[in-house]
Design a protein around this nucleic acid. Structure first.
Lengths: 218, 218
DNA sequence: ATAATAGTGTCTATGAGACAGTATAGC
DNA sequence: GCTATACTGTCTCATAGACACTATTAT
């Protein structure tokens, strides 16, 4: 035991990192910040905050969403906890990652501390290596993508990416974007009917048949 | 920012807590320790260790498995990270929970520090309220059970609970114990064939038809 | 009428569930 | 032979996938 005294009294820092997914221009995008300081100055990173002693992990995540994206009351779930020793070159930081899904209309990026810029980037450009990513955030992003692609198949999380009211073709498009493949209308509708109901209203003003508006079933 | 200075420089402790599942006497059991010190003296808790500065989370979990159950090289995966502020009355401890699945023959409980006793207890008796559980370990256990019950349906994790070679009736029993319901032989076999192959050997010596031994397919 | 998109009906293939049957060991 | 457990064949039903069809708006 003696030889570990130092290790046993020092403590790691704990942070939360946030994967804020949204859909813009028919693309799945992530909120990323450009770092203005070392380490990884000029690199892109997930927004995140350190966990304070007077807040839970979920509260820290909510605070991060508020501070760095102007988001409140949105869908959020814990993803995974990353604990490699050297994931941050400055010091030992354990990162609890969270996934958030939000309609584009709610996103309001805030340029915060230690950050040059905040913006939405497609997961394609982020993953294709065209952006320099800080820390182990590439791994976190890959894992987060895998999670939402799996989860969307059997849990109604896609509703978080549209407004209160939506058309079924619109919702279907969200599924197609996340899954990366086209779906059959008829089959999609049969599957989703369980979770939605008609509002009674319709779209209109376009030169084609209007669409019934739906809402998430209680 | 000023008012948070204290919170920002203090750090929480980080621990790993281990859900070691095994099967004994046709029951699903968990490795639990009886605490010999306050807080929760005399209560039962999941085995766990503090994460040291020179080890990753996975390494800490492996060390905990080794130190408290004499287990090495076993199946293990991260479950969830628990961060309520008062989950430990002494101080702020964030707990990263891990699930381990292991054949009973490998389990070798070790009575360690701050522990009166270590043993295997059925999840039924643990959850029925007949055992006093320390901290938020009841929540962790419920969540872990939910995870393995879901996961066993579509991932070949049950193999971790049997030996190298096993019969199909034996494997089916594992599924029935975890899922808590009987399965049809024929259907179970059709589903599991994808993952197993015959070794060529058979059981014998009992007063009924012998059974073919199988191994996990590479 | 035409273009464009919304919405429906239905056939088929796949897989889960249910159940009845056959096989092989010890006694 | 009997008992006990291992193993197999096959019917049914629910569901996912494929695709063709009909409906309704603006121009």
């Amino acid at each position: 035991m003696k030889k570990y005294d130092k290790d046993m009294y020092e403590k790691p820092s704990v942070a939360v990192d946030l994967l804020v997914f949204t859909i813009e221009e028919n693309k799945l995008k992530l909120l990323m910040v450009e770092r203005s300081e070392e380490p990884f100055k000029g690199y892109y990173a997930l927004p995140g905050v350190f966990v304070r002693m007077n807040e839970t992990l979920d509260e820290a995540a909510r605070r991060g969403l508020e501070e760095e994206a102007g988001l409140s009351e949105i869908y959020m779930e814990q993803l995974y906890t990353w604990g490699d020793i050297q994931r941050d070159p400055r010091m030992r930081i354990i990162s609890v990652s969270y996934i958030a899904l939000v309609a584009k209309s709610k996103v309001n990026p805030v340029v915060g501390q230690r950050v040059l810029d905040v913006g939405l980037y497609t997961v394609d450009e982020i993953q294709k290596g065209s952006m320099k990513l800080a820390f182990d955030h590439d791994k976190i992003i890959s894992y987060g993508l895998e999670r939402i692609r799996n989860k969307i198949e059997y849990q109604p999380i896609a509703f978080e990416l549209v407004g209160e009211q939506f058309t079924l073709p619109e919702l279907q498009k969200i599924y197609e974007i996340i899954l990366g493949k086209p779906l059959y209308k008829a089959n999609f509708r049969k599957r989703i009917m369980e979770f939605v109901e008609e509002t009674g209203e319709m779209t209109g003003g376009e030169n084609h048949r209007p669409s019934k508006l739906h809402r998430r079933k209680s």
